[in-house]
């Protein structure tokens, strides 16, 4: 079974070696890393995961969404409300959470694609819906409006994986598993019929339509799958941070943060989102602790740093770091 899995991955021996090494390091990380480092790793994997999810829409199908915070927020709120009000655990709650996100994604996709809202207009529409949700939730008393929704935090003697209450190490393994799963799903999608159709749409939508591809349907699939995958990140967010404020969860800066790692790593690549998350979050945390070391406390510094990173990458490496790095270390992904 392992042999067939390796064959299916279709990687060069060197790439395999890198992957195994990375996997091993990530697997034993909780035993060697301190709490701070573990939290940083959780953050990195979280961004790798959502970046991967966003990549399905932009990287594969070429639809620029700048409102992915919407799906994160919906996933977070649905699962948190179910948990706090009805005692429904996260692994059951994730289903209605995904369903909600998919429904919203489908609605936005339907409106946009049916009425030929494309490019910049589409991006604006996605932001508008996320902002709409932000202000809406800010006035929705059912979810405590702007006062925020809190999950009960208690000291648990042992890790309760089923209810997702426990130590950072448990959360770490959950998000690690999710990231690996997302990578495999994306790999599967990209090498299947739907993936090739997406790439055709991304490269030239008019030509794709002329070739008989039902572009509307496949763009819808891209939004819906991306929304579903993203919404789990919301569930994780809710149970890891235990507090939700519309002003934070749905904020446009969240949507931007989600996409930064993937852009820096490489849009449309499988390992780009992961590399990007490591580079960006890693550097940002290093910056944070360096500033802490010098006794500086500048609330916007991290974002300025993000902006500069984005600026440099967009100017100098428009295809991202991963294609360039993969070439250097000899593990280039097969051309797509």
């Amino acid at each position: 079974m392992i042999a067939s899995a390796i064959a299916w991955l279709d990687l060069s021996p060197r790439a395999m070696l890198f992957l195994v090494l990375l996997g091993a390091v990530l697997l034993i990380a909780p035993f060697i890393a301190n709490d701070y480092l573990l939290t940083v790793l959780i953050l990195i994997l979280y961004f790798a995961y959502v970046g991967q999810a966003w990549n399905i829409m932009m990287g594969f199908a070429g639809q620029l969404s700048l409102g992915h915070a919407l799906y994160v927020g919906l996933g977070a709120y649905v699962s948190a409300v179910l948990f706090t009000r009805y005692g429904v655990g996260p692994w059951i709650g994730v289903l209605p959470a995904m369903a909600t996100a998919v429904t919203c994604g489908a609605a936005i996709g339907f409106l946009a694609f049916r009425f030929r809202v494309a490019g910049v207009y589409f991006a604006i529409l996605t932001i508008a819906f996320a902002e709409f949700a932000r202000i809406g939730f800010d006035h929705l008393d059912f979810v405590n409006a702007s006062a925020g929704l809190f999950l009960p935090v208690a000291q648990y003697a042992h890790n309760d994986l089923w209810r997702l209450r426990g130590s950072p190490a448990m959360f770490y393994y959950v998000i690690l598993a999710a990231t690996v799963l997302a990578l495999l799903i994306c790999r599967l999608l990209l090498r299947s019929r739907i993936g090739y159709l997406w790439l055709a749409i991304r490269e030239d939508e008019v030509a794709a339509r002329a070739a008989g591809i039902a572009t509307f349907r496949y763009k819808m699939y891209a939004v819906m799958i991306s929304a579903a995958v993203t919404s789990f990140a919301g569930v994780f967010y809710a149970f890891f941070y235990n507090n939700l404020f519309p002003e934070q969860v749905f904020n446009i800066s969240r949507s931007i943060e989600i996409i930064l790692g993937t852009i820096i790593g490489g849009i449309g690549t499988l390992f780009g989102p992961i590399l990007g998350a490591f580079v960006l979050t890693g550097l940002a945390e290093a910056l944070n602790s360096a500033m802490g070391h010098f006794g500086l406390d500048l609330p916007g510094a991290k974002q300025v740093f993000y902006g500069i990173c984005l600026l440099l990458v967009v100017m100098a490496r428009p295809h991202g770091l991963w294609p360039w790095l993969a070439q250097r270390i000899g593990v280039a992904e097969p051309r797509k």
Partner: peptide, 21 residues
């Protein structure tokens, strides 16, 4: 198009947070 878009997103991010600082 998205490349230009991201360039200006980056610029916006820098401006907002520089003003914040």
């Amino acid at each position: 198009e998205h490349s230009q878009f991201l360039l200006l997103v980056a610029l916006g991010l820098i401006i907002v947070n520089t003003l914040l600082i």
